[in-house]
């Protein structure tokens, strides 16, 4: 069992290089990967670049930034944007107030409700938004006829107030449920809520204190991502608003596209960059959290 003296000549102990076949295969894989990535880059970047070209290239005057400068003075821009932002803020507040207590309750004391919550928060993904609108518009059409004599009549009129259509908030809360649920679920999964709560209670903290000082600070990333996703959803939502006859931002873009194509594309690029920024902030925040832990 003594270590061998190298009886073999040095040449028989080769500096083992990978077999030639392996090298050829590695090169083939590299080439193939390059082709796939190049094709993907071409497909995904072309519309972005060309639509920018489209907005700055006037067939008559050549290069111009008018499309971008006109946006802010365009009729309805400020109004529709403010409406969208207002709807987004209301939706975020409502959806968080509804889901956070429910999810905490499920984690802390009613684990059997978990599948129910999961199904409820997945349904909006299964049911196409347009069928949801079809249902809502039916209710709104039938409601006044059948509820005229009841106090609900006022309610059903109030939620359709064109200045601030609460019915859209209701619809958006439903549509946002899946995203909010997943964000918060990931956030709650990363912290051990039960232990945190029990430790805090053990130290004599009151329930409001536990919620405000212990749970919410630890859930900041999840709450932020839920809010961002909801914001992105509301700012981009077209189907429900259009079919219920309101004019938040995305509907406005389509409306002006008939009269000013370059500007509508310019606004599209804007809203796109805004969405990108939101989601980039989100994903970098997510990675920072992960690498930090």
């Amino acid at each position: 069992m003594a270590p061998l003296t190298p009886a073999v000549p040095a040449a028989a102990v080769p500096a083992a290089a990978p077999p030639a076949g392996r090298q050829g295969r590695a090169r083939r894989v590299r080439v193939w990967r390059g082709v796939v990535l190049a094709a993907a880059a071409l497909y995904f970047l072309t519309p972005l670049i060309t639509s920018f070209v489209f907005t700055v290239n006037d067939p008559v005057r050549g290069f111009t930034l008018d499309a971008y400068l006109e946006i802010f003075s365009a009729e309805g821009f400020v109004q529709s944007l403010l409406l969208s932002l207002g709807l987004a803020a209301a939706t975020i507040v409502v959806v968080l107030l509804l889901t956070l207590p429910a999810m905490l309750a499920v984690r802390l004391s009613a684990p059997r409700l978990r599948p129910v919550l999961e199904v409820i928060c997945t349904l909006p993904l299964v049911v196409p938004p347009i069928t949801f609108v079809a249902g809502i518009s039916t209710v709104l059409r039938w409601g006044p006829d059948h509820l005229a004599a009841t106090p609900f009549y006022q309610t059903i009129i109030a939620v359709q107030n064109p200045a601030f259509p609460a019915v859209l908030v209701i619809a958006y809360v439903v549509l946002a449920l899946p995203f909010v649920y997943r964000s918060l679920d990931a956030g709650l999964g990363a912290i051990d809520v039960r232990t945190l709560v029990e430790a805090a209670r053990n130290c004599g903290a009151s329930w409001p204190h536990v919620l405000l000082r212990v749970i919410i600070p630890n859930l900041r990333a999840g709450l932020a991502s839920a809010s961002f996703l909801t914001l992105a959803l509301v700012l981009g939502e077209y189907t429900v608003a259009r079919l219920l006859g309101y004019q938040p931002f995305p509907v406005w873009i389509v409306t002006i596209s008939g009269s000013n194509a370059a500007m509508s594309v310019a606004v599209s690029i804007f809203s796109l960059l805004f969405a990108w920024l939101l989601l980039l902030v989100l994903s970098t925040a997510g990675t920072r959290k992960r690498s930090g832990s």
């Binding site: 073999v8 028989a12 102990v13 080769p14 500096a15 083992a16 077999p19």
Partner: peptide
């Protein structure tokens, strides 16, 4: 793994480069 240097022998036969 492929060693940078040296060899693995099975019953005296060098198998370092056998797939």
């Amino acid at each position: 793994e492929h060693p940078d240097a040296g060899a693995v022998l099975l019953d005296g036969k060098d198998i370092t480069r056998v797939p």
